[in-house]
Design a protein around this nucleic acid. Structure first.
Lengths: 217, 217
DNA sequence: GTTTGTGAAGGATTTCACAGCA
DNA sequence: TGCTGTGAAATCCTTCACAAAC
């Protein structure tokens, strides 16, 4: 494939392997790390050493999006980070709505890692009548029936699910009905969604359960 | 490959693709779900529908470990779940040590999802002198210097890292030095570890950052 | 001299498709 | 008949290796 260096983020998402897209945020992160350490130029070799992957893979991954490096020199840390952020859509704010303001939901609302990366939780919902109206973060907890309208009004593009496993599929169905296409799911279930909706699970128990196989064997 | 049905969890971990191992916990989870719904027999077709994957993939995955189904019928939900649990080593308790008892660390200690799955946090550490000696959960916070000894004494096999990004690599180095081979990392970094050490990251921001690509494109 | 970008090769994973069994 | 288990085929992903660029 030939891509001109100046084609401004018009990327055919279909043409890029999903694994590659999932690695881009990692590149952004490592580049930011190097940038704040004052390093201005970096080779795929050095990036690979830090990410424990082959230089070839990094170069190939980047080649899906353009030609960012200079032969004999490497990549400009700052500008590559910026380009990748733009490709991923990380140069804008993304509004999220959170459903389930129990113990876990409140911890997620209080998590300080989202804001600086451009993710803002702008609405919180709960099915429990007794919680509706309460303050969480600086938001008033809304009832689930208001979901669709609020999604429209506050330009919510991401749903964050922090309800118990028993309610998670129902809540995810509601999000889908409200037009949400990206869901961050903290509930320990494998939800069923239409093919145009993406779900990313945050699940420490699953992560542990696959490691024990190697501990045992 | 031919595997006798009765070969009791003597599995060559090398021979099983890593992706397959990572899917097993998902199968266990869905099977438990069906079991508690009173379903006793299930086909790869039905499993596939719930997990949004092809029946062939499920059958192939399972075939790495044995022959669990009955032609013309399907799989016995209860016994397959049990077999997979045993293969993954989920039929024993696993002790974990947590490092970093700040806001995030305390939330992880309080997370009720680990215990019922056989994971127990049995020690908590922090580099901050002022936190040492305090109670977290029902544990006394220990200083990091006691790590290696405590790992031995309490049979700790898993490290959970909940320190800020700036300290995470150092802490992970300490865990590796103490002989830990499995690490659950909540810090937003891509740590460098020896090849015999496994790290699983829990990182909601990374998860969000790859979804925005598809929201944008 | 160094390092990128990339076709081509190689390897891994998924899907197909069907023999074999209940 | 219905569904598993599995070689073989197809697809997807990674690595190689080198021409081109600095």
């Amino acid at each position: 494939m030939v891509r001109s260096e100046d084609s401004l983020d018009t990327i055919d998402a279909e043409a890029v392997p999903e694994v590659v897209v999932q690695r881009l945020p990692l590149y952004v992160r490592v580049l930011s790390h190097f940038a704040s350490a004052g390093i201005e130029v970096i080779s795929s070799e050095q990036l690979g050493a830090h990410l424990q992957m082959t230089p070839a893979q990094i170069r190939k991954d980047l080649s899906y999006f353009g030609r960012f490096g200079k032969q004999g020199r490497g990549y400009d840390v700052g500008s590559l980070a910026m380009r990748l952020r733009s490709i991923l859509g990380l140069d804008t704010q993304w509004n999220a709505g959170l459903i389930g303001v129990g113990r876990l939901g409140r911890a997620v609302v209080a998590y300080p890692g989202f804001q600086p990366e451009g993710f803002r939780i702008v609405a919180a919902f709960d099915a429990d009548e007794r919680l509706v109206g309460h303050e969480v973060g600086s938001m008033r907890v809304q009832k689930l029936a208001e979901l669709e309208q609020t999604v429209r009004e506050r330009d919510i593009k991401i749903g964050i699910v922090t309800v118990p496993a028993t309610h998670a599929q129902d809540v995810i169905n509601e999000l889908v009905r409200a037009g949400i296409k990206a869901i961050l799911n903290y509930a320990p279930i494998a939800p069923v969604v239409p093919p145009d909706v993406r779900v990313q699970g945050v699940d420490p128990v699953l992560a542990l359960q696959s490691m024990t196989f190697y501990l045992k064997n």
